[in-house]
């Protein structure tokens, strides 16, 4: 299984080319895609998360590891889907209306994809209506909202209210994040969770979809 360790290492060190190559080789050799994900890839991303929490890895390392994970997952996902395997969850993510900042949002999206979520990324300046339309069309169970500015943070509140008004609040969990956002604010606007970094956002998303 020496070769499979290469996939683990490629994700851990953020080498997307090696990640893609070793995945291709493993699949060609008839290795079970599910086993690849469970035994190599997700453990690699968990180690990335551990290193981030321990201040050994920083945001650039998170990004390149998630990118390598994604390169590998793109090859594996069609095979899993053909077998009828469901993603860890479907999440609609976006930076809220009025706000064009997307570094944090992209990082969370990449980490969620790396954790096996299907991520529907609506981009920046996303209106409540767009969130709701995507929720309905894609049957997502999780909404993740980001804002960098206190000026735009209030769009999170109006989006939560719009989701309630559209009658779909019971079908989804809502998580929020971004520099000015706090747990207190999440509680105030009736969001289900808050995370202050991208790694913790993955744990939060797992917890929310399991609830």
């Amino acid at each position: 299984m020496e070769d499979l360790k290469k996939l683990y290492d490629a994700i851990l060190t953020g080498n997307f080319k090696i990640a893609r190559e070793t995945t291709q080789q493993a699949l060609a050799a008839g290795i079970d895609p599910q086993a690849l994900v469970q035994q190599q890839m997700i453990p690699a991303m968990d180690e990335v998360g551990r290193r981030y929490e321990a201040n050994e890895y920083f945001v650039p390392e998170l990004l390149i590891s998630a990118r390598a994970m994604k390169a590998s997952l793109e090859l594996i996902r069609p095979l899993l889907a053909a077998k009828g395997a469901e993603p860890a969850g479907r999440v609609v993510i976006g930076t809220v209306k009025g706000d064009l900042h997307d570094i944090g949002k992209n990082l969370v999206a990449a980490m969620l994809e790396g954790a096996g979520f299907e991520v529907i990324d609506l981009g920046v300046d996303v209106s409540p209506e767009k969130f709701i339309a995507a929720l309905n069309e894609r049957h997502a169970t999780l909404v993740a909202m980001s804002a960098l500015l206190t000026t735009t943070m209030n769009s999170m509140k109006t989006t939560v209210e719009a989701i309630k008004a559209a009658g779909v609040r019971q079908k989804v969990k809502i998580m929020i994040g971004g520099a000015p956002v706090t747990q207190k604010y999440a509680d105030e606007i009736g969001a289900d969770g808050y995370s202050n970094n991208a790694n913790a956002a993955v744990a939060l998303a797992r917890k929310l979809v399991a609830a």
Binding site: G14, F16, K17, F58, P60, L63, R67, N106, L107
Partner: peptide, 30 residues
């Protein structure tokens, strides 16, 4: 926050730390 998250690195600094392939990606993202 920019400095702590690698957001103010130059393209050349990114290449030195993360290699050519990842540098372009990180520059665009971060």
């Amino acid at each position: 926050i920019q400095n702590r998250n690698g957001m103010d690195l130059t393209y050349d600094q990114l290449v030195a730390r993360y290699g050519e392939d990842n540098a372009r990606y990180l520059f665009d993202e971060l």
